[in-house]
């Protein structure tokens, strides 16, 4: 809008309390699209039931986003360097949209590839698992960030910043190194970070995160 774009109609959604809450739905936690990053960081419910996710969430975003930015707004802004989708994708979250055809649910790990038309993101459902664990490393941003989820022998890897949209890989932990490398698309190659370095770091960070989870270290 600073560059001249205008909107014919602006609707203030902040008056809808159902979009703001963080609720326990049993198998999952529902985070309203208008919940702020700060709400997620400080939610007692998340601290109890999704502590590793909450701890990782406190590290993403600059201070302005962390204090006032909404989860839904940042997801839909889809900035390449934003790590929200990476974390949500790895832990199997779903994005809930209200559309002309009613409510639809899309996996966070693929929703960014094709957001539905004429849709309003209303919530994010984050599954609660007694066995799934999460670890996250963003120390090499803005070149690459990696999140790893581990549930039994199944590992999910989320890669941020290295491509135009987040990349996700799911597979057996024993095959991860080779299979992840084979599946990883060519990363962005530019003066901010070379493709070879990004690719190499995806391998290093994902291996470290898996090792960390196997040792039982927290996120």
């Amino acid at each position: 809008m600073r560059s001249g774009d205008t909107a014919g109609t602006l609707i203030n959604l902040s008056a809808l309390p159902t979009l703001c809450g963080i609720e326990d739905r049993g198998d999952f936690i529902r985070v309203g699209a208008l919940a702020t990053h700060w709400d997620v960081e400080t939610s007692p419910l998340l601290a109890t039931r999704l502590a590793a996710f909450q701890a990782a969430w406190t590290t993403i975003g600059n201070v302005r986003i962390r204090m006032t930015g909404t989860v839904g707004g940042n997801l839909m802004a889809a900035e390449r360097a934003y790590d929200g989708p990476v974390l949500l994708g790895v832990i199997g979250a779903k994005l809930i949209f209200l559309t002309d055809a009613g409510e639809i649910s899309l996996p966070a790990l693929s929703a960014h590839q094709d957001y539905p038309d004429r849709a309003l993101l209303t919530a994010i459902d984050i599954p609660v698992s007694m066995t799934a664990r999460l670890s996250f490393d963003r120390s090499l941003k803005p070149v690459v960030s990696v999140a790893v989820g581990l549930d039994g022998g199944v590992v999910s890897v989320g890669v941020g910043c290295a491509h135009t949209t987040p990349f996700f890989w799911l597979g057996r932990i024993d095959d991860m190194e080779d299979a992840l490398s084979a599946a990883l698309p060519d990363p962005i190659d530019n003066p901010m970070g070379g493709a070879a370095y990004r690719r190499r770091m995806v391998g290093v960070l994902s291996r470290r995160l898996v090792d960390r989870l196997r040792r039982g270290d927290a996120s």
Partner: peptide, 22 residues
């Protein structure tokens, strides 16, 4: 990263992509 140029094109000339110490 400082100011990163790709040729004569500044890649990170905005408050979101340009990183100052926090």
């Amino acid at each position: 990263p400082c100011m990163v140029y790709d040729g004569a094109i500044l890649m990170n000339g905005n408050g979101l992509d340009y990183r100052v110490p926090l």
